[in-house]
């Protein structure tokens, strides 16, 4: 079968358009929905309590695998098992977190108080990201982005709250996908490599995650 040049060009255009729609997609296999409660203490943001809700299928896989006694609750030993085998590996990806202040950009790696729970077949991870010592009293941004593209992040149901202690400060927030603020990462980076790349260099990849901006 032979096609005329015009016909083949038309077919190429149509196919390319169809395929290019898909090329925008980054092929995630699971999705999670973070909620964040920022702790404002004495005018500083001292940390954020993370609450990640997972999609039904990933949830069910973890619940089925780790809730040994099938009582729809995770006991301490089960949570420890989940932490070891279905959370801790995220340290290799800096827990998907990038924090940016006016002067600095880095991965906040001080993670504690991990817990897991389940509700109506949905899995939830809870943990604290500490900003103690950072003197975070000015505007900053936080992005949650999986550089492997295995998981997608989406926000729903008022994803950000603030708990103010000893202060009257009430920060505001907004989500933006800022094309001027790309996220550069090294897909071949070593586990202990915590470098935050501020500009593109050969070997680095670029992404534009949705960024949360917190304004004081």
């Amino acid at each position: 079968m032979h096609l005329s040049a015009n016909k083949s060009i038309s077919i190429l255009f149509i196919l390319f358009l169809i395929l290019s729609m898909s090329i925008l997609d980054a092929h995630p296999h699971m999705m999670f929905y973070p909620r964040m409660n920022f702790i404002i203490n004495d005018d500083y943001c001292t940390g954020v309590e993370m609450d990640w809700e997972f999609d039904s299928m990933f949830s069910r896989s973890i619940i089925d695998g780790f809730d040994k006694n099938k009582n729809n609750l995770f006991e301490t030993d089960e949570i420890k098992n989940i932490y070891d085998r279905a959370f801790l590996n995220l340290r290799n990806y800096h827990y998907f977190l990038v924090l940016q202040t006016e002067n600095d950009k880095f991965h906040p790696n001080d993670i504690s108080e991990f817990s897991a729970s389940q509700n109506n077949g949905k899995l939830f991870y809870h943990f604290l990201v500490s900003f103690e010592g950072l003197k975070l009293y000015q505007d900053f941004s936080l992005s949650i982005f999986d550089p492997t593209f295995f998981s997608a992040v989406s926000y729903k149901d008022e994803p950000v709250t603030f708990s103010s202690i000893n202060t009257t400060k009430q920060p505001t927030y907004e989500f933006k996908t800022d094309r001027g603020e790309p996220y550069y990462y090294d897909p071949q980076g070593a586990v202990e490599d915590t470098t935050v790349h501020k500009s593109w260099k050969p070997g680095l990849k670029t992404a534009y995650p949705e960024v949360l901006y917190v304004k004081f």
């Binding site: 898909s22 997609d25 995630p28 999609d55 492997t148 593209f149 989406s154 897909p187 670029t206 992404a207």
Partner: peptide, 24 residues
């Protein structure tokens, strides 16, 4: 090797909408 381009939130959500429908 892993992906090299940013994700489209809308398309991701559409994909997961259908996956959640399957689950349902």
């Amino acid at each position: 090797r892993t992906g090299t381009i940013g994700s489209s939130v809308g398309l991701n959500e559409l994909q997961f909408d259908f996956r959640e429908k399957m689950a349902d």
